[in-house]
Design a binder for these strands. Structure first.
Lengths: 203, 203
DNA sequence: TGTACATCAGTGAACGCGCGTTCACTGATGTAC
DNA sequence: TGTACATCAGTGAACGCGCGTTCACTGATGTAC
């Protein structure tokens, strides 16, 4: 079956999309290639026409979904600013909302996979670290401009940490009321960190 | 081999300890029972004399290691207070330190496994949720007493979220300098949240 | 005190299964003539 | 315009392997006599 131009690229994109959903839903290790390929409407044998290994797919899937998260947050911030609202608050509300908590497979890969990514080999961790840098840049861009770039980045890292940590804890608890309290606490903490900045040299 | 009284309980403890290290180091799904039993100095067949299933071991291992984390943090806080230092700062420095970052297998199971725990069945998530509650209580006890219990708990949840999120991000990056910056930002953010408390009704 | 027996923690082979990866094959389509 | 051929994305069987779980067995020790 020799197919039309661009078809292979389209199939590759479809496999990456299917994988990135499965990875976020079930974990990387728990996801089998046969299931991913079936989601993409293919049989498992064709996998190696597109990727050299599962590892390469993992890297591609992480890069794709983290770029999507970055773009989503940037878009929400921009929209809020255009409406005269606070960009950071929009980011925090989007990330720490019930919809994101309830659909890990469509959400941020760091919230779904951070610890598992930390166990991957260096190239895979580098892909994730680059993506974190970009997401943190989006957050830093919403912070008061009077702080230095370095201070803004550090504050942004801390904000992203609360976001990731809060979403994970909210997903662990089965109690909807507690989960809501957690999300709200996380949102408020993120804004508290942003509003106050970070104190120097305390710890 | 009928063994002395208490030997079975001691073996069970040994298996739980080995499992809890492996789970934190490699992930729950990626950990095989044969490896756990070998670490405990046994062959894999004997596993079911102690546990009904891998799931039961997971619950026991999570409960044990999270209780250890709780006790460790409580002890650090107590020691600091007795020395006239700040209990919360001691907790934060212990948790967000290089030693904890570099030895996930000996550290907090939430930092190593939160997302994977969120994918477990309800009984397992309940074990983790209970343990989170206890750790959060330890943190809340170090907060200013003038806040209501409920406010303290919410602040403590947010602090624990920064702690978990920061450690995970620090473990992803391969850059030691960035990792140090991340840990410091997380420590400062935790204290910022504690010092300011949470603003009500903003988000 | 000495012997026979029951117990049961631990052994190691076996089970069915899904994994990542390989490979000989298929057949729809673009290209050459 | 019509035919023959080369390409190569995708198929499906097969591979060796490790998984969780089961089970017939072993043998050191506590208990009964």
């Amino acid at each position: 079956m020799r197919y039309a131009k661009g078809r292979k690229e389209e199939t590759r994109r479809r496999v990456i999309a299917a994988a990135s959903r499965r990875f976020r839903r079930d974990g990387i290790d728990a996801t089998g290639l046969a299931g991913v390929m079936a989601d993409a409407g293919l049989t498992h044998g064709g996998f190696y026409a597109h990727f050299a290994s599962k590892d390469e797919l993992v890297r591609a899937a992480l890069a794709a979904s983290l770029a999507a998260t970055r773009d989503r947050l940037a878009a929400e911030a921009k929209r809020a600013r255009e409406e005269g609202a606070d960009g950071l608050e929009a980011i925090v509300r989007t990330y720490l909302g019930a919809a994101h908590r309830d659909r890990p497979e469509a959400g941020c890969a760091m919230a779904a996979l951070a610890a598992e990514i930390a166990r991957q080999d260096a190239p895979t961790r580098d892909v994730a670290a680059d993506a974190i840098w970009q997401i943190v840049s989006i957050i830093a861009a919403e912070l008061p401009a009077d702080a230095s770039d370095q201070t803004s980045r550090q504050t942004a890292y801390a904000i992203f940490s609360v976001m990731v940590g809060t979403l994970q804890l909210a997903r662990v608890t089965g109690d909807p009321a507690l989960s809501e309290v957690l999300l709200r606490s996380g949102r408020e903490a993120a804004l508290t960190i942003a509003g106050r900045g970070l104190r120097a040299g305390r710890t």
